[in-house]
C-alpha cells in the first residue's frame, strides 16, 4: 500500500550505486538485520558467513552478497518448509489446537482459518476453549456467525478441558471435517497455565484418536527476541507442529520467526495481514525474506 511505501525503502537502495563491498556496507547490513528482529547472534553469524565468502573471493560485488544473505536466511526457514501445507487425516475430523501468548491473534486467526476451510467446502466447527478472558467466548461466537459455522461453548469460567471433552464427542458424532480449538492466551512462563494447556491436549487425544492433529503456535510479528522463549516453552509443553505469524500488515518484519524455525524446525503455515476474515495468506518464504530486506527510512 501507499502508506507502507512511505515508511520503507528497498534494500536495493542500500546497494544502489555501490560497486564495492566495504565496511560501511556491512554496518548498514547489521542495522538492517537487527532492526528486522533477527537478533544479534543470527545477524553476526550471517555477516560472518558473508565475510568469509568475500574473503574466499566467492563474493565480489554487493549484489551477490545480498543474494548470499537471502539464501542463507532461506536455508533457516525452508529446510523444514517441505511440509508447510496442512495434511488432513484420511477420515474423521482434523483438529487444530491454537496456542500462544496473550493478544497475539489466536482467536482472529481461527476466524480466518475457518473462512479458508469453509470456502473450500469443508464443514467447520469452532471450540471456545478460552473460558478465562472477558468476552472471549462472545468474540469467538461472532467469528462463528461470520463464517456460518457451529461454535461449541460453555459459560465463562468453565473448565476448558471439559469444553474440549464435549467438543470432541460432538465433532465425532457430527463428523466435522475441521475443528478449530481456541485457547486462552497465556505467558509461556506461567507454569500452572501451561499445565492446563497440556491437560487440554491430553483430553483431546483421549476423546478423539490422533487429536490434535496440529498444534499451532501464533506469533505476533512485532515480537522481539522473547519469541524464542515463547516457542521453546510452548513446544516443551504441547509440541508445536506449525506457526502462524500475525500482524505482518504493520511495519514489523517478524524476523524472529527465522530463528524459531531454524531452532525448532517448525514450518510456518500462515501469515496474518489484517483483522478481516480474508486477511490470511499461505506463508511464502521468498516474499517473507524480500520483506525482511526492506528497511525503514531513517
Amino acid at each position: 500500500s501507499k502508506t507502507r511505501e512511505a515508511f520503507t525503502y528497498q534494500l536495493d537502495r542500500l546497494f544502489l550505486g555501490r560497486k564495492e563491498i566495504d565496511a560501511e556496507l556491512f554496518d548498514d547490513l547489521e542495522e538492517l538485520l537487527i532492526t528486522a528482529d533477527l537478533g544479534v547472534t543470527t545477524t553476526r553469524e550471517l555477516l560472518d558467513h558473508a565475510r568469509r565468502k568475500v574473503h574466499r573471493k566467492e563474493l565480489s560485488d554487493p549484489e551477490s552478497l545480498k543474494l548470499a544473505l537471502k539464501d542463507k536466511i532461506k536455508s533457516f526457514i525452508i529446510d523444514y518448509q517441505r511440509d508447510a501445507e496442512l495434511v488432513m487425516p484420511e477420515s474423521g475430523p482434523f483438529v487444530i489446537m491454537v496456542v500462544g501468548v496473550n493478544g497475539v491473534g489466536k482467536t482472529t486467526t481461527i476466524g480466518k482459518i475457518a473462512h479458508k476451510f469453509v470456502k473450500a467446502g469443508r464443514s467447520v466447527m469452532l471450540v471456545a476453549g478460552d473460558t478465562f478472558r472477558a468476552a472471549a467466548v462472545s468474540q469467538l461466537q461472532i467469528w462463528g456467525e461470520r463464517n456460518g459455522v457451529h461454535v461449541v461453548a460453555r459459560a465463562d469460567r468453565a473448565d476448558p478441558s471439559s469444553v474440549v471433552y464435549d467438543a470432541m464427542d460432538i465433532a465425532k458424532a457430527k463428523n466435522y471435517d475441521v475443528v478449530l480449538v481456541d485457547t486462552a492466551g497465556r505467558l509461556h512462563t506461567q507454569t500452572n497455565l501451561m499445565e492446563e494447556l497440556k491437560k487440554i491436549k491430553r483430553v483431546m487425544g483421549k476423546r478423539l484418536e490422533g487429536a490434535p492433529h496440529e498444534v499451532m503456535l501464533v506469533i505476533d510479528a512485532t515480537t522481539g527476541q522473547n519469541g524464542i522463549s515463547q516457542a521453546k516453552l510452548f513446544h516443551e509443553a504441547v509440541g508445536i507442529t506449525g506457526i502462524t505469524l500475525t500482524k505482518l500488515d504493520g511495519t514489523a518484519k517478524g524476523g524472529i520467526v527465522a530463528n524459531i524455525c531454524r531452532e525448532m524446525k517448525t514450518p510456518i503455515r500462515f501469515i496474518g495481514v489484517g483483522e478481516k476474515m480474508e486477511d490470511l495468506r499461505d506463508f511464502d518464504p521468498d516474499e517473507f525474506i524480500e520483506a525482511l530486506f526492506e528497511s525503514r527510512l531513517p
Binding site: 522481539g224 522473547n226 504493520g250
Partner: peptide, 12 residues
C-alpha cells in the same frame, strides 16, 4: 505497549 515488542517499538 507490549513488553515483548522488538525493534518495531520505536516506529510505532
Amino acid at each position: 505497549a507490549d513488553a515483548m515488542t522488538g525493534q518495531d517499538a520505536v516506529t510505532v
